[in-house]
Nucleic acid binder design. Structure first.
Length: 896
RNA sequence: AGGCGCGUAGCUCAGGGGUAGAGCACUACCUUGACACGGUAGGGGUCUGGGGUUCAAAUCCCCACGCGCCUACCA
């Protein structure tokens, strides 16, 4: 049998995915158990323009781990994949492509443009789905969805019509966030606030009568051209007499009133605010309250309008600002300019400064929907956020302060708003043009040109992707889904909206749990971003270290942010290699053996201590991993598995069983040992499979006796694969404290002897005699039973076990549990003085610890108030330390 | 401006009222028939600082400092 010494991840990665997919292993239909419990996840649909980044890789890993785990536990499992049409992004990609051909979107026209986007989608979109296959994600590709699919579009129209008919969707002329670059309106969530150093300008406006004036402070002087009032706080003594007066707005000579409004903070600036209802959200509100005129001085391209006056007409908003300031200075009306840091709104996508503009748009009223979501959280504690702190509060606080959502967008790519207008301006909202015509009683209809915010369709994803509004079997079976796994950046954009829509249209929450992943930062602690060019490409990491190693690293991230470090992936690459070589050893010594679960039963004959111990470790590991995954503690699960496989299985079990397993002569004992080793390995591979699907499958397929009979009963009809075996169950009777304790004593003994070897610089090739003295009979029995293993692992020429050590004076010694002593006779090598000092130091350390413990025990309040269990534990420790000290003293005495 | 989180070994991070942990890095020895992407044995920490609660605090509470993140209509 030829097995390379090094694991080649790339090869294993090519060997299995296609077969899994082709054989339908990812589809819930593979499960033939009619009573199987269900488990479902819908993927956060990546943008059709997107390519795999670390955030995806992280989320996908966690989703795949939990999905593969549940599948192996016999759940009818669905992980539903799909993509988002990503309105603006996709439109920009195709527009850019057209530009290279020298064609503009408008030259092409809407219909042709949309056709072109579909063509792009077919040919270049969805790169990410290929990349996801590399990740090994066990999604059911046969159910893949796209948010612009006809059935999902129908769901969007259905929802729109329902919400419109209930009055929750309305069209209105209001102040909105406008991106002058993208030429579309944006919701509050698509706007980011950026702190910026700027200036605060103090402008003086003269009163119409009497030569008085009032000074306002502003960061945007150019908007003064559209001022239609100045507001002061009604309780502000300074301005009380001026309320109701009229000012003459400089540069435009418009008469504007001074109004009183509670919004104004007397402490800020001059306590007087210029009011520009057409260009500032707060001023807009003041304008509504005081019935002020809205003078539009900035247009949708952020240029000054004709209403700004001939001098300013056509100027860019920034040039206009400079000019206004200049003019004020000339007129002596610029009181002062001070440095001022404020936050500015920018388009999240293109970073252009947002221009608040009055515009006719479609809005979704959120209050009732929001109340239902809050009620669900309050009464049923759903969704359950993990970690609950802080995300439950983040979620509920945001909902509490929710405002109406601007859902229309001035784009061509997206779900066109299902509203039509008659020639007399009547609005018809319908599921289709035919329905609209029927409703209107005329064919002369023009459809609204806008499309819906991409998130409008995303929020329906958990049920639209399962076929809603049709009543489908998938909805019956898999809705609500089990868990949503996502980054924290879309809790508002997506998670909260899915909850509201799920409640509204399905009458149930869309998912039970929400697991929020951490963020992967670069090595400097910066967020990875395209503009900073500091992103790490997961595909490169896959190439370098393998998918399984990368997945293990990602699974251990958890819910806090971490800095990326290749070294950690490298250590998991080494772990994969360790697994490979442990299997290599097992396979090289597998003749005559076959996987046999019965060889791991408590009743199986010929169980040695190390066998009972590894069964205990195996079952404790299954228990701990199951518990960890149950609480989405991926990190803990990885730690547990890593420790079990490397430390327990490789370092100790393989070494202890080696003599039997690798014996030259065939014997029933050898076959039993080989079978047991093989079967433990097979169980270990199953435990690891959800995390490391490729290497585990690659190895499992080669194990003697691996086959269909090992599959979970629910998958009996499937082809043979580790991914459909049963996840190891916990057999509590195999978790064996005695075996663990005894094994620990053996391990300690071996470590002490090795330590002596190392300290005394004895070559490992040189055999040494080992003398053990243990007053405890039970301990002697344990050492005796494992004499051969001890001899081999410490390379002893002989091991003698007695009640009292009879080691010669010239020996290196060490004290063990229960006051046992181990000695290695080293005539001529012992420096008695040095040895005495070493032992004395050890004794002092123990004495110091004993003193600390005794002081604690001497405290009556401790004995009185601490739990009895703790007190007993402490006493036991003191006893053990006392025994060791006594033995040490004896040993030192013998050296005199 | 408010809210939240973090500060543990040289580095990246777990843990979390009762004996301070892992990986990497470091030191010494070892190519022994699974694996040098390995083995064995080690060194290394006042758990940011200061108060408090408790029999017991790295862990809970308060304050300070430092670093992040999120929310917001102060011109």
């Amino acid at each position: 049998m030829e097995i390379p010494k090094q694991y080649d991840p790339q090869q294993a990665e090519q060997n299995h995915y296609e077969r899994w997919e082709k054989q339908g292993c990812f589809a819930p239909e593979i499960n033939h158990d009619e009573n199987a419990p269900t488990f479902s996840i819908v993927i956060p649909p990546p943008n059709v323009t997107g390519s795999l980044h670390m955030g995806h890789a992280l989320q996908h890993t966690m989703m795949d781990v939990i999905t593969r785990y549940k599948r192996m536990c016999g759940y009818r499992t669905l992980w539903l994949p799909g993509m988002d049409h990503a309105g603006i992004s996709t439109q920009l990609v195709v527009t850019r492509e057209l530009k290279k051909e020298g064609v503009s979107r408008h030259e092409l026209g809407r219909e042709k443009f949309v056709e072109r986007v579909w063509k792009w989608k077919r040919e270049s979109g969805g790169q990410i789905t290929k990349q996801m296959r590399r990740e090994g994600v066990s999604v059911d590709w046969s159910r893949e969805k796209f948010t612009m699919d006809e059935d999902l579009s129908a769901a969007v129209r259905e929802v729109f019509v329902c919400l419109y008919e209930e009055g929750k969707i309305y069209r209105g002329n209001r102040i909105v966030n406008w991106c002058p670059n993208d030429q579309t309106v944006l919701s509050d969530l698509e706007v980011e606030k950026v702190a910026q150093d700027g200036k605060l300008y103090y402008l003086r406006y003269p009163t119409k009568n009497g030569g008085g004036s009032i000074t306002v402070a502003t960061t945007r002087p150019e908007t003064m051209l559209g001022d239609t009032a100045v507001a002061v706080n009604p309780n502000d003594e300074r301005y009380r007499d001026l309320v109701g007066e009229t000012l003459v707005l400089p540069l435009v000579a418009r008469s504007i009133p001074i109004v009183a409004d509670d919004f104004v903070d007397p402490q800020f600036g001059t306590g007087a605010v210029k009011v520009t209802p057409a260009h500032d959200p707060n001023d807009y509100d003041i304008g509504v309250r005081h019935n002020l005129e809205r003078v539009v001085v900035i247009d949708s391209h952020a240029k000054m309008t004709e209403a700004a006056g001939a001098e300013f007409f056509g100027l860019d908003r920034n040039k206009a600002r400079a000019k206004v300031v200049e003019k004020f200075e000339e007129l002596g009306l610029l009181e002062k300019v001070v440095d001022y840091e404020f936050s500015i709104s920018k388009c999240e996508r293109c970073k252009t400064v947002i221009e608040p503009l009055i515009s006719t748009q479609w809005f979704l009223r959120m209050d009732e929907l929001r109340d239902e979501a809050l009620k669900l959280l309050e009464q049923k504690k759903k969704p359950q956020f993990v970690p609950e702190v802080p995300y439950e509060k983040v979620y509920s606080n945001w909902l509490e302060n929710l405002r109406d959502w601007t859902i229309s967008r001035q784009l061509w790519w997206g779900h066109q708003i299902p509203a039509w207008y008659t020639s007399d301006g009547e609005t018809i909202v319908a599921r289709s043009e035919e329905e609209a015509k029927a409703k209107a009683g005329t064919d002369q209809l023009v459809q609204d040109q806008d499309v819906l915010d991409t998130w409008f369709s995303s929020q329906l994803w958990p049920f639209s992707a399962m076929g809603w509004p049709e009543k489908t079997k998938d909805l019956d079976t898999f809705y609500p889904t089990s868990v949503l796994m996502t980054g924290r950046d879309i809790i508002f954009l997506w998670v909260s909206r899915m909850v509201m829509m799920g409640l509204k249209f399905m009458g149930r929450e869309p998912f039970a749990d929400v697991f929020v992943t951490g963020t992967i930062l670069d090595a400097q602690g910066q967020r990875m971003s395209k503009t900073k060019m500091n992103g790490i490409d997961p595909l490169e990491v896959f190439d370098k270290y393998g998918v399984d190693a990368t997945r293990l690293k990602l699974a251990s991230v958890g819910s806090t942010d971490i800095r990326w470090n290749d070294k950690q992936v490298e250590s998991y690459r080494n772990f994969a290699n360790k697994i490979w070589n442990a299997a290599r050893f097992t396979l090289l010594n597998s003749e005559g053996a076959t996987i046999d679960p019965e060889s791991l039963d408590a009743t199986s004959p010929g169980l040695a201590l190390h066998d009972r111990w590894i069964l205990s470790r195996l079952n404790a590991t299954a228990r701990d991993v199951r518990a960890a995954l149950g609480g989405y503690e991926f990190h803990a699960a990885v730690q547990t598995l890593y420790h079990f496989f490397w430390d327990d299985f490789c370092d100790w079990y393989i070494e202890l069983t080696k003599a039997e397993v690798a014996a030259q002569e065939a014997s029933p004992e050898r076959t039993t040992a080989r079978t047991r080793l093989l079967t433990v390995l097979e169980q270990a591979l199953r435990l690891l499979h959800p995390f490391m699907p490729y290497i585990t499958e690659e190895l499992w397929q080669q194990l003697p006796g691996a086959g269909k009979h090992l599959l979970h009963p629910a998958y009996r009809e499937a082809e043979s694969t580790i991914m459909l075996t049963a996840y190891p169950e916990v057999k509590p009777d195999l978790i064996n404290d005695t075996a663990e304790w005894e094994m620990q004593a053996v391990i300690d003994l071996i470590s002490r002897v090795r330590n002596i070897r190392s300290e005394m610089n004895i070559k490992s090739s040189e055999p040494i005699p080992v003398l053990i003295g243990s007053p405890d009979e039970k301990l002697r029995a344990v050492f005796s039973a494992n004499q051969n293993q001890i001899t081999r692992l410490v390379r002893a020429s002989e091991v003698s076990i007695m009640a009292k050590s009879e080691a010669p004076r010239a020996s290196a010694r060490s004290v063990l549990v229960g006051g046992a002593e181990v000695a290695v006779p080293l005539a001529g090598l012992i420096d008695f003085e040095a040895e005495r000092q070493r032992l004395n130091k050890e004794k002092e350390k123990l004495a110091a610890e004993a003193a600390k413990l005794e002081a604690q025990l001497a405290n009556p309040q401790f004995v009185e108030r601490a739990p009895a269990e703790k007190v007993n534990e402490l006493r036991a420790r003191i006893t053990d330390i006392a025994q060791r000290i006594a033995q040490l003293e004896q040993t030192i005495e013998n050296l005199q």
